[in-house]
Simulated assay, not measured.
Amino acid sequence: MATKRIVDVEEESSDSGSGSGRPVKRQRPIVGPDCPGFEEMTKLQCMDSIPRIIEPFLRKVVREEVDRILSCYRNFLPRTSSVKQIADARRSRRWQLRFRKKLPATVFAGTKLEADDNSVIEVSMIDTFSSAIVTTGDLSAIKIEILVLDGDFGQEDWTQEEFNGNLVHERDGKRPLLAGDLSVLLREGSGVFGDVNFTDNSSWTRSRKFRLGLRAVESSSVVKEAVSGAFMVKDHRGELYKKHHPPALTDDIWRLEKIGKDGVFHRKLVENGISTVQDLLRFLVVNEDKVRSMFGSGMSNRTWETIVQHAWECWIENIPFCYYNLSQLQLYFNSILQPVGVKFHGSYYQPYSDLNLQDQALVNKLKLLAYINQKDIVPIGLLDFPGHH
């Protein structure tokens, strides 16, 4: 195959210097390493391509650095994990009122409102950016009002209009739902309820429950309200049948969960000599299976476990009982017949926990005799108890 040659293009031009008028051959410009300025052109092209090459790398570095800075900032915003969330938090009301403790699931009209643990209800002003109590500034000493909300108002976030739209007022012809000290003055960002109580039950509402709400008397546009959990309000007469937590030894047995007053379980227990919480605990110590068999299949295991667990919440009084076993020793029991100590004749009183295994085995054997002959277990005064100092 013949090699293709680059043909020079002939162009006529007049050479004023030669005056010969002959045609002159002009070659096309040479492009390549031998071309003048090729090196400079290459450098310019490289410079143009550098941004396209390193742009992804720079984006990655910038993103990592921004994430690092935000991770430090998140230490002060524990519930905020993205730039969008931070922006949303800034647009919302930064300060919020909060209940410090839960309210009980059931309260009674006419009874002072308390927290679930029977303590005073505490409230605070919170900076939602840091979750810290606002202890200084005007917002740390504002007055807040106590309000009643519908039990169905349970969303996690709300607007001021939604809060106000769910307020509940008294029924026609009734007194205001709340009575007493219906405002709290914050000091260093915290305050407590005074004597506040409901005047009516919640059975007439759709949810049959209420919630408590807190609202700043002033600055409500920048302070978000507080909303408690839902709870039921019963008439004061319902307190007559209220379960006690914890129960007392002298409480009637129907004060325990799952045992209704004058109900089937209540009557069955009374028929078997169990009328108080103390009676039940004594029976449980002596022979729990016997007590359980009183109900048979008429009581589920779950119901039984609930009753027993509630009974054991009782504070056990340290009232000793003394059992004389012939001439060998004296066994001492607490108020529910648990052995607490022993006194061998000719020796001193020893707590049950201090006995060696052999003596504990003897006590456990003799206590069964005492349980069989409970009429011989005689209560003694605390000052006469050998372990008392």
Rank of each mutant, 00 (worst) to 15 (best):
M47V: 10
S49H: 05
Q27S: 12
K43C: 06
K25T: 15
V62N: 05
S81P: 03
R91L: 07
S81Q: 11
Y73W: 11
A87F: 02
R74L: 02
L58T: 12
Q85T: 03
K84S: 01
C46Q: 11
M47E: 11
I86L: 01
Q45G: 12
K60W: 14
I86M: 01
V83H: 04
F76Q: 11
F38I: 04
Q27P: 12
V61I: 15
E64M: 15
R74Y: 13
P78I: 06
R94E: 11
I50N: 10
T42I: 15
P51C: 01
D67G: 02
S20G: 11
R68E: 07
I30L: 13
F38W: 05
F57D: 13
P51W: 02
V66L: 12
C46W: 04
L58M: 14
S18W: 06
K43Q: 08
A87R: 06
R59W: 08
L77W: 09
E55F: 08
D88Q: 10
I53Y: 06
I86Q: 00
I50E: 12
S81D: 10
F76G: 10
L70S: 01
P23W: 00
P51T: 01
R93G: 07
F76C: 09
S92A: 14
P29L: 10
T42H: 03
L58C: 12
K84N: 02
R52N: 14
P56V: 04
D88F: 03
S49L: 06
R93P: 06
P51V: 01
V66R: 08
R63E: 03
A87N: 08
R93I: 10
R63D: 03
S20M: 11
S82P: 03
S81G: 12
G37Y: 13
S18H: 05
F76A: 14
I86D: 00
S81T: 12
V24F: 10
T80E: 00
Y73G: 02
I50H: 05
K84A: 01
P36K: 01
L44H: 09
P33N: 13
D48R: 02
K84G: 00
R91E: 04
T80N: 00
V66M: 07
K25P: 15
P78L: 04
P23F: 02
I53V: 15
C35K: 06
I54Y: 15
F38R: 02
K43A: 07
G32N: 09
D88N: 06
V24S: 13
I30S: 14
S71H: 07
P78Q: 04
V61M: 05
I54N: 06
V83M: 08
V83G: 02
S20A: 14
R94T: 15
P78K: 04
R63C: 03
Q27D: 13
I50C: 13
K60M: 15
S16I: 09
R22I: 14
V24C: 08
N75W: 14
K25G: 11
R28F: 12
S71P: 01
Q27E: 14
R59C: 08
V62K: 13
P51M: 01
P78D: 04
P56W: 10
K43R: 14
S18R: 08
G19K: 12
G19A: 07
T80G: 00
L70N: 02
E39A: 11
E64I: 14
R79Y: 15
Y73E: 05
T80M: 00
R63I: 05
